[in-house]
Simulated scan of single mutants.
Amino acid sequence: MSHAAYVFDAYGTLFDVHAAVRRHAGDVGPDYQRVSEMWRAKQLEYSWTRALMGAYADFWQLTEQALDYTLERIGGVDPTLRQKLLDAYWKLDCYPEVPAVLKALKGRGAHVAILSNGSPDMLRSAVDNAALGTVIDDIFSVDALRTYKTAPAVYDLVTTAYRLYPDVVSFQSSNRWDVAGATRFGFRTVWINRAGLPDEYPDLKPSLILPSLESL
C-alpha cells in the first residue's frame, strides 16, 4: 500500500548511532561497545526527563552531556578522545540500504521526510554526509517546538506541514518507544527492529515489523 508521506526517524533508523564510537574503537579500548550503548541510553534519557520538566536543551547539548557522563562513569578512556567522538557524531554512517529505499519511495511520488529529536544542524550534517539531500524533501526537528518525542505535537509537525490525516503517513523508526508514540498519534507505523528485540508496548502495536528498511 502506498502512502502520501514516508517519514523516518533519524538516529538508529537512517543513521547508525554507534558508528561514532566504532570509528574510534581501537583508541577507546575494550569497553567501546559499552561506551556507545551508555552514550545512546543517556542521550535518550536526558531528552525524556527534559521534556517532562519543560526544561528544553537542544539535542546536541544532550549528546555532549551524555558523553561526558559516560566517559566519567566508565573511566579508562583517554579524555582527548572526547572531541573526536563528538566530531564523528556529525558524520554518522547511514545504513547500507537507506539511499536506495529513499530513492524508490520518492520515485512513487510520496513525500519523504525526517522527523527527529536531532537539532537542525545535526540533521543537516548527517544528511549531507550521507549524500541524501536529493531524496529527502523535508527535515522536521523537535527544536521547532522545544520539546521531544513522544509528545503528540512532535508528530503533528508532519501532518500540519503536509495537511494530511495521520493515517496516510507511514512512519518508520528503530526505536520502539517512538513507534509507540507515533502509533498513539495515528500514524501507520513500521518498527525497524534491527537488533531483534522483544516488544515493549503490546497495546500500541506497529502496523509492520521489519529487520531493516529494505523491504519497505
Rank of each mutant, 00 (worst) to 15 (best):
A126D: 07
A100P: 00
E200W: 04
L52R: 13
G107I: 01
D93A: 10
F8L: 09
E64W: 03
P30T: 13
P96S: 07
E200R: 12
A104G: 11
N175L: 07
G12D: 05
D16C: 06
Y95P: 05
D128S: 13
W90N: 14
H24A: 08
V112D: 01
S125N: 10
A195T: 15
Y155N: 05
R23L: 14
A88M: 06
R22V: 12
T159Y: 09
L85I: 14
T189I: 06
R23A: 15
A104Q: 10
H24K: 07
G107V: 00
C94Y: 01
Q33I: 08
L44M: 15
D167N: 13
A66V: 02
A151G: 06
T49R: 15
S215T: 14
S119F: 01
L204R: 07
M122F: 03
R50N: 15
A100V: 10
S174D: 06
L145E: 02
A19Q: 12
S207E: 11
E45F: 11
D16G: 05
L102T: 00
T160M: 02
P202T: 11
G109Q: 10
V168N: 08
W39C: 02
G196H: 09
Q33K: 11
L208D: 08
D87P: 08
K103L: 05
A153K: 09
R34D: 12
S173Y: 02
R108M: 10
K149F: 05
R22L: 13
I114W: 03
L123H: 05
R188W: 00
S207P: 01
V169W: 04
S141T: 06
A51T: 08
E37I: 03
R163Q: 14
L208E: 11
D199W: 03
A182V: 07
V179P: 02
F15S: 01
H111C: 09
E64Q: 15
S174E: 06
H3M: 09
D68R: 15
S141G: 07
E37H: 10
Q83K: 11
K205F: 03
R124Q: 14
N117F: 00
G107W: 02
N129S: 15
L62E: 08
V21Y: 02
A41L: 11
V168G: 07
M122C: 02
I192K: 03
Y201F: 15
T80S: 10
W48T: 09
Y6F: 14
R176T: 15
